[in-house]
Structures are given as C-alpha cells and as structure tokens.
Write a protein that binds this DNA or RNA. Sequence first.
DNA 1: AAGGTCAACACGTTCA
DNA 2: TGAACGTGTTGACCTT
Length: 263
Amino acid sequence: MRPQDVQEEDEASSHNESPVELSLGCPLLPASAEIGSVNSEVCRRGIDVNTVLVDGDTAQGRSNLLTSSLPEEFPVQHQAADQEAAEDEENSGAGAGARKKLRLSKEQSAFLEDSFKEHSTLNPKQKSDLANRLNLRPRQVEVWFQNRRARTKLKQTEVDCEYLKRCCETLAQENRRLQREVAELRAMRTAAAATYPFYGFSTARVCPSCDIKNTPHSPAGITTPSAVVAASPSPVLTPLFSRPHLVPFTVHPVLRRQPSATS
DNA sequence: AAGGTCAACACGTTCA
DNA sequence: TGAACGTGTTGACCTT
C-alpha cells in the first residue's frame, strides 16, 4: 500500500467528495453587508465563497443558525463533523467527483500563519492541536503547511533570482571597468616603451584606477586593484555579500555547507 | 475570456 | 516499510 493511500483513505470518508463549507462569510461585517459583497475584497478572505444560497435562506437566517452552534474562537468556520454530514447531502445532489473550492477563513489563515512562523513543519501533536483548535481536519492542516512551504520556497526562489540578476549586472559592470583599465595600462606601457626604449616597462607599478583610489592607508609601491578593494571595499561589490533572505528558516541549497572530506 | 490564487491531490523521494 | 515531505498538477473561484 502506498503512503498516500493511507492519507487518502483517511480522507476518503470526509472529503474525497465535494466538501461543503458551512460558514457564512465575513464575521466582521453585518449580515446585511454579506449578501451584496460576496466577491468584495474586504470579505474575500473571511467569507466562505462556497456557501450555497438556498431559496428562502437569508444571510441573517443562516447566520443565526450557524453561529449559535459554533465555538467562540472561530465562530463561522468549517466544522469537520458538520462538514462530513453536509458532504453526504452534497453527494446526493451534485456529482460525487466534483471538487468544491474551499477557502479557509481569515482567522484560520492568520492562526496557521502564526504557527508557521514558529515552525514550518508540524509534528503529529501540533497538527492535531491545530486541527482541533481551528475545527479543521488534520489532513487540511497538513496540506496547508505543505502548500505554505511551497509558497515560501517559490518566493525565496524569486528573491534569489532577482539577487543573482543584480549580481550578474554588477559583475558585468565591474568586468567592463577592468577591461578598460587593462586597455589603459597596455596603452601606457606602449607609450612609455616608445618614449624610453631602454627602460624596462614590462610591468606597471601603479594602475590608473589605483592611482586615483590610493588612500593614505594604502601601502605604497605595488598596488593591485584587488588590494584596493580589500583596503576599501568598493560599494559596487558590496551587494554581492549581502544576499537578501526572505525567511529565516529556509536555506538555499546552493548555500548549504557541503560535507567536506577533511572535517 | 484570460490569468491568478489556493486548497487539494498524485506521485516520487527520503529517512528512521 | 510507513510516515513525512517536496514538487508538479488540478480544479474551483476570483479579479481584471
């Protein structure tokens, strides 16, 4: 038996079919506001967009009916048990294969987010505690965390991509500057060799940019661009060493320490 | 209608 | 070997 079969078996009785959300919508708005604002931005997160409007079933009526039996903390959310019962009803009506869109409420999402900030993975106890607290099935909590990790990773990938693009641009710019510098040095050497043909000009002692950048702290004598950079880090290169990190708990694979053979 | 979001799913991989 | 996880996909719903 495959692992997922276990999970799916676990769910099969409750949500393999279309889960029907029993909540009514944004608890922060009066019932009268819900009717005309199902699609509004304000209510989008808090509302159950799957609420089935039945003829003669007013928002106020449903509100009274449902909130009276719901826990205080998350007063309008899915109740796992009620949900299962509702699914049976649903299956008798709509096609059993149809997957209904289920939206977590604002409160549920916020609570899950807070939990995610504390730990991005769940142990079984945390999962069941969260599920109980939010009136969700453990599988729903698990799926939410899976998806949340995926979103985090995607975001981090985007940030990394932007960062690498900037690095690339910076390095290209630096490369162009160094190429120009090399060209200038070659020109200087050629000119010097032409002027003083018997004086050894195989190497330049100070390059143009170093000449400009040399500070009292810099050692006299032979100066290289890298020495200048080391002595006073170029603002151009600084961003290369300050990679942005979106979240504290993910480590990009590239930056993971490779196991070394010696240590 | 197109494109985005997100819960849910399917399946492969890893690890104890 | 099973649980947990990562990743890609699906489908319902929403916005523009």
